[in-house]
């Protein structure tokens, strides 16, 4: 039963990890931008959900699409107004730009919301599901299912819609896509907007699970990095597999080696994959 509980813990955590990482992977895969702001965008979504809950009484699960749309607008504006200007530049330039934007956003959030930790408390609590002597917390379960639904939704958008195909086309060959009439800067802005949408939605879910503060953004960013490398950069099924694999590995790693090593495991894994299988578990590039 101990192992069942540890497995449940890992899968629940892994589902949330997938949602944290998918927007980051999309932006990295399509735009070749390592978006250092991604963690802060998650936190911004979490704060939006927190205030919507405390001031307006909107349940964070219901608020997910609203946070997503709001962050989409912000992401679109950032890419169209700022990041598109350096899109042809080497990756270090875009990295530095998102690093700078992240500093601004993080400090603006510290100024606006203070650094205190806050958390959405759903009252009465959603409770637990008992499986033998193991427990599944309903809030984590719902958050994980919604997270996976979002990730699946994004995959469907990329595969079936006209804009999705255009994003994939830009990902595969920017010049050819432009020759076929795709407005590349607009696709960039939409892609960054979608990345922010996923971050905002993830943030709304995280507000129910984790204590939030502008300072926690770096933890989410670190996980997103590992999951992208684990699952294969730019692959949405890869992100789902990578997220769940990381959650389960951390969970069992913590059981066997002690909780002190659960975060170390993630980075050891990152190094091992970079050395032996740099394409990740799924071993695929792009969204095809």
């Amino acid at each position: 039963m101990l192992y069942l509980q540890v497995l449940i813990n890992g899968i629940l955590l892994g589902g949330l990890y997938s949602c944290i990482a998918v927007g980051f992977s999309l932006v990295w895969g399509v735009l070749n931008i390592i978006n250092i702001m991604h963690g802060s965008l998650i936190i911004l979504g979490a704060y939006a959900a927190y205030f919507a809950f405390t001031l307006l009484g909107i349940n964070p699960f219901v608020f997910v699409p609203i946070a997503g749309v709001a962050l989409f607008v912000l992401g679109y504006a950032l890419q169209a107004g700022v990041i598109n200007r350096v899109m042809g530049a080497p990756v270090l330039i875009t990295l530095t730009l998102t690093f700078g934007l992240n500093l601004i956003l993080e400090n603006a959030m510290i100024f606006a919301f203070k650094a205190d930790y806050r958390k959405v408390i759903i009252d009465p609590p959603l409770g637990l599901i008992e499986i033998g002597s193991a427990f599944v917390p309903r809030d984590r379960l719902y958050a994980m299912l919604l997270a996976l639904l979002l990730v699946g939704g994004l995959y469907a958008v990329l595969r079936t819609t006209r804009i999705g195909r255009a994003i994939v086309a830009v990902r595969m060959d920017r010049e050819a896509a432009a020759l076929m009439g795709v407005n590349v800067p607009r696709i960039y802005a939409i892609t960054f907007g979608l990345g922010a949408l996923m971050a905002g939605s993830a943030g709304s879910l995280m507000s129910v699970i984790f204590p939030i503060s502008p300072l926690t953004s770096v933890a989410f960013l670190g996980k997103a990095f590992v999951i992208c490398v684990l699952g294969g950069l730019g692959s949405i099924p890869g992100v789902m597999v990578g997220g769940i694999a990381l959650g389960v590995l951390e969970s069992f790693g913590s059981l066997w080696l002690g909780p002190d090593y659960s975060t170390t495991i993630a980075f050891v894994l990152l190094l091992a994959l970079l050395m032996f299988r740099p394409t990740g578990i799924m071993g695929k590039r792009g969204f095809e």
Binding site: N9, G10, F210, A219, F252, S254, S262, T263
Partner: peptide, 8 residues
């Protein structure tokens, strides 16, 4: 910086 304590 541990983000999850479920296993502990």
């Amino acid at each position: 910086g541990t983000l999850d304590h479920a296993s502990a």
